Computed example of a mutant assay.
Amino acid sequence: MDKIAVLIPCYNEGMTISKVISDYKHVLPSACIYVYDNNSTDKTGEIAHDAGAIVRREYRQGKGNVIRSMFRDIEADCYLMIDGDDTYPAENAREMCQLILEGKADMVIGDRLSSTYFEENKRLFHNFGNDIVRKFINILWHPKNPVRDVMTGYRAFSPMFVKTFPILSQGFEIETEMTIHALDKNLMLENIPVKYRDRPTGSVSKLNTYTDGAKVIMTIFNMYRHYKPMRFFGALSLAFLIAAVVLFLPVLLEFIRTGLVPRFPTFIASGFFMLTGLLLFACSLVLDTNATNSRKDFEIQMNIIRMMLKNDQETSK
């Protein structure tokens, strides 16, 4: 088992990967550096191997697929994930890893947005998108320790996080999924401001502003629906019930005044909305019970994994 494992998912980062490996070797000389080459066509894997990294291949395209394989394959006391594009200086790596090794956090987020990101990043819609995603998550989950950067690829993880994180995303939604998982499961989360520098000339971002941005928003929507069904379906239920009352009141007042129901379509629509609202409320109760049971099962799994990790550490000593 490694003490610190540096994880670098890569797709066509041949221009920068050698420098990234060198920088993190200098700051974390005892760490094992793993580069997972995701079908690169520019000899990223060969360059990384020559620079001294342990190189492995992931043939399923997408960052989420790469992280899934990394988390399954590698055993360590601390995992540090970075991008291979040389946008994250290594100077904060030791501090981030120390928080994990001391048991003060399960995930440490390298917060670019509180530092130099908005000045360095040249893609304006990326700035807007990062800010929107951060605000959505903080509003929907309202954590005591607000998340300052959701889309950053610079993070440190504990073994507990890595071995209990169910990865569903295949692409760049993975960072959003990580953040929401930590918040929903009440894991310890810390933000560390880190400097950000834009990609060097000739290096191209693989993230598509519009398609990947839409996937991130859908990930937030779906995870909120899965993790907070009472709030999600309860809000829909309330909306339908209010609409039903608004439609029904004029019909009721007319009936009280004249004894007639002249607007049958409105009366039928109000009944449909009322029935839909009640069904949504019933669904919210059932799904909330399932979500609560899932959290209970997760806590039991965490206890089992914690015992296994403790036994592994004692055995390795």
Results as ranks from 00 to 15, higher is better:
Asp2Val: 00
Lys3Trp: 00
Ile4Phe: 05
Pro9Lys: 11
Pro9Cys: 00
Glu13Pro: 10
Ile17Met: 04
Ser18Phe: 09
Lys19Pro: 04
Ile21Asp: 05
Ile21Arg: 05
Asp23Tyr: 06
Lys25Pro: 12
Val27Asp: 10
Pro29Glu: 04
Ile33Val: 15
Val35Cys: 07
Asp37Val: 08
Asn39Pro: 05
Thr41Phe: 04
His49Leu: 12
Arg56Asp: 04
Gly64Ile: 01
Gly64Asn: 00
Asn65Ile: 03
Val66Met: 00
Ile67Phe: 02
Ser69Val: 05
Met70Phe: 15
Leu80Ile: 06
Asp85Cys: 11
Thr87Asn: 01
Tyr88Arg: 03
Asn92Met: 15
Met96Trp: 03
Gly110Ser: 05
Leu113Gln: 09
Tyr117Ala: 12
Glu120Gln: 15
Lys122Ala: 00
Gly129Trp: 02
Ile132Trp: 04
Lys135Arg: 11
Asn138Phe: 07
His142Cys: 04
Lys144Asn: 08
Met151Ala: 08
Tyr154Trp: 01
Pro159Asn: 13
Met160Asn: 01
Phe161Gln: 02
Phe161Tyr: 13
Pro166Glu: 03
Ile174Glu: 02
Glu177Asp: 03
Met178Ile: 02
Ile180Arg: 00
Leu183Tyr: 04
Leu187Gln: 09
Leu189Met: 14
Leu189Pro: 01
Glu190Asp: 13
Asn191Gln: 08
Lys195Gly: 07
Arg199Asn: 10
Pro200Phe: 09
Ser205Met: 01
Val216Gly: 02
Ile217Gly: 00
Met218Trp: 13
Thr219Lys: 04
His226Trp: 09
Lys228Asn: 14
Phe232Gln: 14
Ser237Tyr: 10
Leu238Thr: 08
Ala239Arg: 14
Ala239Leu: 13
Leu241Cys: 02
Ile242Tyr: 01
Val245Glu: 07
Leu247Ser: 09
Gly259Asp: 06
Gly259Gln: 03
Phe264Pro: 11
Ile268Trp: 10
Phe272Ser: 07
Phe281Trp: 10
Leu287Thr: 04
Asn290Ser: 06
Gln301Gly: 12
Met307Ala: 14
Lys310Tyr: 13
Thr315Cys: 10
Ser316Thr: 13
